[in-house]
């Protein structure tokens, strides 16, 4: 029997998004575990160290940053986004009536949610690291003035981190969609990624992924960075939608 009830696209996508959010609740647990591992490694040895001496004095300066939180969270987002394109995640789309567009919108909202949560935990992880460090009684040994993060910087840091996580998630989603389209790409894509990285390590004149990364990491204007990240994420999402047009049939 066909339903005569009509529903708007956004309402449909919204319901689907909420459903997916609940179905993928385990991603929150993995994100938390990833954060705790990053915190553990950061507190264990910092993220950088310099040692210098002149016979009278030997000074070791250990630097603490959110680098571990960033790397671990980006890895989480990349892997989670690929998993979202997998068969089991795809089968969730058939739990109720939906359209291709509503599914794409729901997935895009899910990736944006991952980005927002990832950015938030990266920024707050940096604060947690500072508080733990401070209460451990080493406040007097801190040099420089970057221990304090003004609230404005924290907000901007959250936004920038969220955009990096979203960018990574949409890249993972795009690659996952490609792999779903042609299974052979499951071998070719990682091989190309690893191969290009090895090539770059061996030959300093070849800078493929580094150039692509620098497009974002070397941007010194926050406004232009936001535009770049949003545009790239949008293009990757659009590419994913185009690629997955023929992979909607339940297998």
């Amino acid at each position: 029997m066909m339903s005569l009830a009509r529903t708007s696209l956004l309402a449909l996508a919204g319901r689907q998004y909420l459903y997916k959010l609940k179905a993928h609740a385990n991603l929150l647990t993995t994100l938390t575990v990833v954060q705790l591992i990053a915190l553990f490694f950061t507190l264990l040895g910092g993220t950088g160290m310099v040692n210098t001496g002149n016979g009278h004095l030997n000074i070791t300066v250990t630097t603490f940053s959110s680098a571990n939180f960033i790397v671990f969270t980006l890895t989480w987002a990349f892997v989670a986004a690929i998993v979202l394109t997998g068969k089991s995640a795809l089968n969730l789309d058939f739990a109720f009536v939906s359209t291709r567009l509503s599914r794409s919108l729901a997935n895009a909202a899910l990736l944006l949610t991952m980005g927002a949560l990832g950015g938030l935990v990266i920024a707050l992880g940096g604060i947690l690291m500072r508080v733990i460090f401070f209460i451990s009684g080493r406040g007097a040994d801190i040099i420089g003035a970057d221990f304090y993060l003004p609230p404005g910087d924290l907000l901007l840091g959250t936004l920038v981190a969220a955009l990096y996580v979203t960018l990574t998630a949409t890249l993972g989603y795009f690659l996952g969609s490609l792999i779903q389209r042609r299974k052979i790409l499951a071998v070719i894509v990682p091989a190309l990624l690893v191969g290009s990285l090895m090539l770059e390590v061996r030959n300093p004149n070849i800078r493929l992924s580094l150039t692509a990364m620098k497009f974002f990491t070397a941007e010194t204007s926050p406004g232009i960075f936001v535009l770049k990240a949003l545009a790239a994420s949008g293009l990757l999402l659009l590419g994913s939608i185009v690629v997955s047009r023929r992979t909607e049939v339940r297998r």
Partner: peptide, 27 residues
């Protein structure tokens, strides 16, 4: 005897890319 001092510094993290490259690294 040679004095060993351990000090700690914090980085501006992800916002460092928007800062002019001064005072960033003790290295």
């Amino acid at each position: 005897p040679e004095l060993k001092i351990k000090l700690y510094s914090f980085s501006r993290d992800i916002l460092a890319q928007f800062s002019p490259k001064t005072e960033q690294s003790h290295l």
